[in-house]
Amino acid sequence: MLDRTPSEPLLSVDSLTVSFRTEHGLITAVDKVSFAIRPGELVSLVGESGSGKSLTSLAVMGLITDPNAILTGSIRYKGRELVGLSRHKLQAVRGNEIAMIFQDPMSAMTPVYTIGWQIAEQLRAHRKLTKKQARTRAIELLAEMGMPSPEVQVDRYPHQLSGGMRQRAMIAMALSCDPSLLIADEPTTALDVTVQAQILRLIEQLQRNHGSAVILVTHDMGVVAEVADRVMVMYAGRIVEEGPKEPVFMHPGHPYTEGLLRSIPPMHGVRPHRLIAIPGAPPSPANRPPGCRFSPRCAYRYEPCGIDPPLFRKEQQDIACYRAEALLEPVGVQRP
């Protein structure tokens, strides 16, 4: 599926840091995150609540508008720096080159206009189209999203649609200008499992047919296994593991990735008497432990973990864990 030949990255994020000024001091939610997205690949950004995965994707979209937010680092799209770009210049990129879909379509649409009007507005903002042309294109897009009788649906308001149909309308809007990069933030989390399957298939088709790169933000390892080419696992504001899907799932290098995969109840085969849970809870951005942020919950913890681990390269995976480095020369760390 994935073209392994090295190509110029579409998006490269370098040392992205998002902090917030609060009454309790500066809180760093996303901490020196770096990654690159190549054209046409589907990369999944996984993590639990508070991991910073949504903020990372909002930062790429230039949607962090909180006056107390401080954004540093670099976000380059097709070689062009997006950090510090004026609102006006950013708007030419946003929606046109990079589009985003959200968990809750109601928050991305206005309730007072029909979905057709909203898709047409987006089209007319970035393309030279007449109202009539834009409307025709909107109907085409809705049909492409698998919406039944699109010429009727185009005149309906968001609240008149079901959750799955609303999600389709939002995807149609996001894809109206053929973006090279689609950021999907938990696009199926609020949907029922049978509808989720439809939407995931739709996103896969779009990636294949339009050749768009997709960043799929999710907490569900099942969804990642289903659709992603590459995985980035975030924990407490950092990327802790990154690599192609197969090795990450078969040989997770970071204890957190391993724990996440093992804590999911199996759908087939023997039912374990107990699930292998990760003790404790993910830390809030305000109370992150020193050193390796996962160490208080980690079964493999040993002395070096008091110092923040860098990313170690192990074949195709990048792993922020001393164990990954130590595995080359095994150390006597016992599982409790």
Binding site: E48, M221, S263, P265, L275, A277, I278
Partner: peptide, 11 residues
């Protein structure tokens, strides 16, 4: 609940 915590509560 987050997946890692969900397993604790199921147990």
């Amino acid at each position: 609940l987050d997946v890692s915590v969900q397993a604790q509560i199921v147990n």
